Simulated scan of single mutants.
Amino acid sequence: MKRLIKIFERDLKNSIRDGMLLFILIAPILLALLLRAFIPAVKDLSIEFGAVKPINKALVEKIETFAPITFFDNTEKLIERIEEYDDFLGIRMESGEITLIAQGNESKELLSLASEILVQSFNPSGDSFTVGESELGRKLPPLSLYGFVLVILGSFLFGGMIIGFNIIEEKEQETLKALRVTPMRTFDFITGRSLIGFLAPIFHAFVVVWILGISNFNPLMLLVITISGSVIGVVFGFWIGVISTNQMNGIANMKISFFVLVLPVFLAMTLPEKSHIFLYWAPTYWTFVSVKNLLLELQTWSNMLKDISLIIGTSILFALATFRKIRSGILS
């Protein structure tokens, strides 16, 4: 245990002393603060409606004097469009009644204004009229939701970068060879060096949810997901450290690896869900799914355990595939 703590203390001191590594430690917090500055602007977006054909032409003309309407062939396509990242509202006409469909994360002001537009368009005489609202269940603005997911995934990889650059520094100073003649085992070295890759994301996760004003989540679930997701960053860090000969080479390898790991998340945010099967290989995809469900208050312990198994399982597969390379790189 003393050896593990010593390795952790050494990594922490190196991270604070090195300006680039210090930036990596505070980068997720800076990103969260930048994201927070843009979140209020979501309320300033204009209203857009969507509707399924056919719909009364006279009503459409009246609504379009206030806001544009996009038409869809069926309700499923309309729902898919509503669930995208901006404030897009749906209109449904049934039996002479009009229903407003929303995600559930829109501001009260936006929904009130949309309702007033429909009331005025449907019943311009000003008589009493009620518009029904149907929410799709989202309780968090998309900018907060997907911004948090990306910042936390970045935190995992930033923690891995610290591990990787510390290994590169020791390779350049040839201190790894000196460690081979000490009582320290390979297991001690890997475990001690991994600590910062687990502790930094935990710190970042709870600071970022506070910065973004996210309160409706299970803290224990967030802790468990963060710890399991950190495995990705730890494996990533050791891989960068052992395959890189110097810091410049490490930066180049980091950029390529970072792109490969983050790309599945961007694809998951843009592709239809039926296409996600092609992303199942990526541990970052399962982290994205688990964190998203947690923030939307859809996560259960049984589903989370399944997600965690897939996160750790896909990370371990990569670790096993590269274990010999990592081990030989540490001992060389």
Rank of each mutant, 00 (worst) to 15 (best):
L22N: 04
L30C: 12
K6N: 15
L59I: 08
E84H: 12
K53I: 12
I55K: 00
L25S: 07
K43M: 12
K6F: 13
I16A: 11
R17H: 15
F8R: 08
F23L: 14
P40F: 11
K57E: 15
L25I: 11
F88W: 05
L30D: 06
L78W: 01
T65C: 03
E64H: 01
A51P: 01
A32V: 07
M20T: 15
F38L: 13
L33M: 12
T70K: 12
N56Q: 12
E76M: 03
F38A: 13
L34V: 10
V42H: 03
F66H: 05
E84G: 09
D11S: 05
D11Q: 10
N14Q: 12
D44V: 08
K57Q: 15
T65A: 10
K77M: 10
A41G: 07
A27W: 10
A58Y: 11
I29F: 12
V42I: 13
L33W: 07
F72P: 03
D86G: 14
L78A: 05
I24V: 14
F71G: 09
M20R: 13
R81V: 10
I39N: 05
D73F: 01
D44I: 04
L22Q: 02
R36V: 05
T65F: 04
P40A: 03
K6G: 04
R10G: 04
E9H: 10
R36Y: 13
N74I: 00
D11M: 00
I29M: 01
E61G: 13
E83P: 00
L21P: 05
I91K: 05
K57R: 15
P40T: 08
I55L: 09
F88N: 00
I26K: 09
L31V: 09
I82H: 00
K43P: 07
E84S: 11
A37F: 08
I47H: 03
K57T: 15
L45T: 14
V42D: 14
E64I: 07
Y85Q: 07
L59V: 00
N74M: 06
L30E: 05
F88P: 00
P54H: 02
K62E: 14
E76S: 09
F66T: 03
G50Y: 03
K77E: 13
F38C: 00
E83I: 01
E9L: 15
G19T: 14
L21Q: 08
A37P: 04
A58H: 11
L35V: 01
E76K: 02
I39V: 15
N14A: 12
T75Q: 13
A51D: 08
N56P: 02
D73R: 08
D86W: 07
L30T: 07
I55A: 03
I91S: 01
N74P: 10
E64F: 01
L45F: 13
I55E: 02
S46D: 13
D44T: 08
R81M: 09
I26V: 14
N74Y: 02
I26A: 06
A27G: 03
N56I: 05
S15C: 06
P40D: 13
L78Q: 08
A58E: 15
I29T: 10
E76H: 04
L34R: 09
L12T: 11
I79Q: 01
L78G: 01
S15E: 02
P54N: 09
K13Y: 15
D73Q: 11
L34G: 14
S46R: 09
E80S: 11
K6C: 10
D86V: 12
E84A: 01
T75H: 11
I69K: 06
L89T: 06
F23N: 07
I82T: 00
L30S: 06
L34Y: 02
F49L: 10
E84V: 09
L35Q: 08
